[in-house]
Design a protein around this nucleic acid. Structure first.
Lengths: 295, 295
DNA sequence: ACGGTGCCATCATAAGTAATGATTCTTTCT
DNA sequence: AGAAAGAATCATTACTTATGATGGCACCGT
């Protein structure tokens, strides 16, 4: 087992294709095949299932992948610890809530990219529960989530504090006003699992509203648009609403203090070896946070 | 950077000699030299200082070593995760208090060796503070210590609960009896830093005895012998005293409940990748503990 | 001072591994 | 059936690694 071969393995696993891995590694297809076969022979197990459409990891391959990744990041870290950072490169797989992605991430990523280009960042969005699962299962290097209820396998740092606001069609001046006019309030939420939804339910329960009529959305603008059109209300970070092109079409209701704030945390796997790129990203998040606090 | 070369590097670092590393790895000296030089060229730093007596790590080399070790244990772990454990081999560097080493370790090591031979274990003894430092600095894989005051970098599991007893020359029937006859009590202890010493001071302070006259020893039998000869008193685990050939020559005083027990813990580095051999050792320790409890 | 000893570096050569490009095999899509 | 996409195989070339012999350096004992 040696590191170059593990790198070939990990790349092929990521790209799902021998040919594409060969291109990515600037070598030829037959070589990638040979390296992988060597690994398989050495370990005595099949790592990939081959098909006409490419390759997919076998369960054994899935098992090997995290080890391979850790060894490779350790090698990277060792290199830069010993012979100076050089330019950090690699891939960071980051997850984010959609609201964070649209309102907060651009700034963070811009700051990050300015300081450290050479790192490719891929962002996937999802609900907190999904993202946390991905980080735990090592399919993401880190994620911005809400309410990471102190998961034992995760490290979390608070990255943003969001003010939540409720939005309603523009004609209602207060939330009670809206509730009065719609016997069963309609609530527009992101996909199920989103943390904001619980917050919203809790708040409305406090106002004596029980059964919610829920609609699920994939995009922020969809939600705001539908609220504007009178379809229902929603709960979103103020930063998201303010940034929307359609913000004049809805009314923004400030929430009582106790319900108002929600923390977005950046979570990473505790037991995993942290790549330099990831260290740098957390550093940027931290500095962004202090900048925010000063403002 | 590849794993075989890192293994050469780590072995050479451990043995402090190119030639001996070559023997240990069943290759030739010139090859070891070449592998190391390749690593040095690749990283652009000097890893060893060469002298006529062998080689020693440079600071850069020291930096690299823990990374190399982690990658190598990860490779081992990966291999056995994917293609079954095979036989685990390697080196475990374990630290122990001298009292634990003489009274408790033989049993543990015997149980371990029965189940998993092929692992070489080296035991070094020292005081808790020394050993903890070694584990933190990664010069030991684990250590049996007392009073590992929740060091943030260490994981600790309680491995033995020792009953401490005081021993005095045989003619004194109680501790007070001894104290009456010697205005400044002499206390025989292991090297400074030993946790038992604090315990003893605390206990004697409770009996109204202040300034202790202390003598330092390197061996258990030395202490017991000197106590027998009337030189002073000491505080030791009952298991140690009972096992001594000279136990009839001293009197054993049971301590009050509150001072009686001390826990020996097995500590390991929290952030370090754990080798399989180390996992197995902790497993043996755990099972030994439950066996002990049942007895 | 001088040969002996232990240790590392260097070098030419042999042995072994890895990369390439061309070709073949397999599976699906049209 | 033919085309397309993708992986395996293979002979060849390029490169790395291992070997054993040799040389150099710093000490040690006489």
């Amino acid at each position: 087992m040696n590191l170059p071969d593990l790198n070939v393995f990990a790349t092929a696993a990521r790209l799902g294709s021998v040919t594409r891995a060969a291109h990515a590694l600037s070598t030829v297809q037959s070589n990638v095949t040979a390296r992988i076969r060597l690994l398989e022979r050495e370990l005595g197990v099949q790592l990939f299932d081959r098909s006409y459409r490419g390759i997919t990891l076998t369960p054994k391959g899935e098992q090997l992948l995290p080890y391979a990744q850790q060894m490779l990041t350790l090698a990277e870290n060792a290199r830069s610890a010993v012979s100076g950072p050089g330019d950090v490169r690699g891939v960071l797989r980051i997850g984010s809530l959609q609201s964070t992605a649209s309102a907060r991430l651009p700034e963070v990523l811009k700051a990050y990219a300015q300081r450290h280009d050479g790192v490719d960042i891929s962002i996937v969005t999802g609900t907190s529960t999904e993202l946390i699962d991905h980080v735990v299962k090592n399919r993401l290097d880190g994620a911005f989530v809400s309410g990471a209820d102190a998961h034992p396998d995760l490290d979390a740092v608070t990255s943003f504090v969001e003010e939540l606001v409720m939005i309603s069609p523009a004609q209602y001046r207060t939330i009670r006003d809206y509730l009065k006019h719609s016997s069963v309030p309609k609530v527009l939420v992101f996909r199920i699992g989103c943390h904001y939804r619980r917050q919203l339910e809790h708040y409305l329960a406090g106002l004596g509203v029980g059964g919610l009529n829920q609609m699920e959305f994939g995009t922020i603008d969809g939600i705001i648009g539908c609220v504007a059109a009178g379809l229902g209300v929603s709960l979103l970070p103020r930063s998201v609403v303010e940034r929307s092109a359609r913000r004049r079409e809805v009314r923004i209701h400030t929430l009582p203090r106790s319900e108002r704030y929600v923390e977005t945390q950046f979570v990473t796997h505790r037991a995993q070896v942290r790549s330099l790129a990831l260290e740098q990203l957390t550093a940027v998040i931290q500095s962004d946070k202090t900048a925010q606090r000063r403002a």
